[in-house]
Amino acid sequence: MITLEALRRFGADTEKGLAMCMGNEALYLRLINSVPEQQRFDELSHAISEGKRDEAFEAAHALKGILGNLALTPLYERASEITELLRNGADADYERLSAELTEERKALAELCEQCD
């Protein structure tokens, strides 16, 4: 299981995340641990590669909420960026943004596995 210390180094606002979980460290870490398995990541990258912007928005939007609640800042910032761009219907390099998010997801997944 990932540690608070490792999370902090990863760039998460652990203080805020813990507060969200009413100081329940076990709950917080358990939820963080389950983030890399979130289907929403796959839905997002899939929708972007297919050019389905509505579906992409829905997935990004959902991820933004989850990641924000857990104060996973590095992932949250990327999900946020994608969400807002899609919301405004902006033209952007979504493939690259999605890839960056996928990188962060991988990094978190490794962190979780390392600590196991």
Binding site: C21, M22, L31, S34, Q38, A62, G65, I66, N69
Partner: peptide, 16 residues
């Protein structure tokens, strides 16, 4: 709420 993580966070708050 459809997202499990959100459900759990919120549930944990409201349970008090």
């Amino acid at each position: 709420e459809d997202e499990r993580i959100n459900r759990e966070i919120l549930g944990n708050i409201l349970m008090t």
